[in-house]
Computed example of a mutant assay.
Amino acid sequence: MAELLQGMPEVPLANLRARLAERAAASGLLDVAYRRLDTELGALLLAATPTGLVSVTFDGDHPAATLERLAVALSPRVLEAPAQLDDAARGLDQLITGRSRSFAGVLDLTLARGFGRQVVEELRRIPFGQTRSYADVAQAVGSPRAVRAVGTACRRNPLPIVIPCHRVVRSDGQLGQYAGGVDAKRVLLDMEAAVS
């Protein structure tokens, strides 16, 4: 094998991956592109379809489970293609740091289904710097007794930060749970309060 490679120019692996991603996208073979984004909240994993940003998770350091879930739910043609998500990464970074109040990119809500989709749509209506209780959201979607189901839908929100499930708190004022952890939720809410 070494003899075959002898005399060939060395090309960094990152360049090879980038070229593969470009060719796959140009050929219509890239159904889900993903990249890691390091933020003050931790390492995030961003994924997009040709339609738009489809997933943000707090497992950028250990993406295997998320990538498997995306392959099953969307397509097995999943490829690391950071350049495909540069705009989304910038938009997300601006949200996290308070330089933007909303995400300007296109979203793909394919992963939000059924009652969860109703909740996600309602979460998008919560203004920057404000909060709602799980009970408020349940009432707004027409299911006032579905407070726990709203909590589950927030936990399963495929686009946390972008679709602000961090703005949903308990009726007693406590923060409640969050996919990125309570500390991340507190950071986001404190930042929004400071910028508002």
Rank of each mutant, 00 (worst) to 15 (best):
Y178W: 10
F115S: 07
A73E: 14
V54T: 14
E80G: 12
S102F: 10
G91D: 09
T39V: 12
P76R: 08
T51D: 14
C154S: 00
L92W: 04
R156K: 15
R99F: 01
V120F: 04
K185Q: 07
L74C: 12
A146P: 06
T39Y: 06
R155W: 10
V162L: 13
A24I: 00
L46M: 09
L41I: 07
L175G: 00
R132Y: 00
D86Q: 15
G176M: 04
A83K: 05
V187P: 03
R156E: 15
G105M: 04
E68P: 04
V56H: 00
E68Y: 08
L95S: 01
R35S: 14
R186K: 14
T110P: 00
A104P: 10
A89M: 06
F103E: 03
R186H: 11
A64L: 07
R101P: 03
G105F: 10
N15T: 13
V72Y: 07
A89W: 03
R132D: 05
V187T: 13
L4F: 11
N157R: 01
T131V: 15
A140Q: 05
L109V: 11
R117C: 07
R167C: 00
L188Y: 03
L159E: 05
I96P: 06
A14D: 15
A18R: 13
Q174P: 00
R155D: 11
D86H: 14
A73C: 08
L30K: 02
S133Q: 11
L107K: 09
G173H: 12
G151H: 08
S75E: 10
K185N: 06
A83G: 12
V141C: 10
A25H: 12
V195Y: 03
D59N: 15
S55I: 03
A65E: 15
S102A: 15
L29Y: 08
R69T: 13
T49R: 04
R36E: 08
A193D: 08
R186M: 09
L175N: 08
R124S: 13
G28H: 01
V72H: 15
P160R: 03
E10D: 11
R17N: 11
R132E: 05
G60I: 01
R69I: 04
T152D: 11
G105Q: 11
F115L: 14
A48M: 13
L29T: 03
A88P: 00
S75F: 09
R145D: 15
A81N: 06
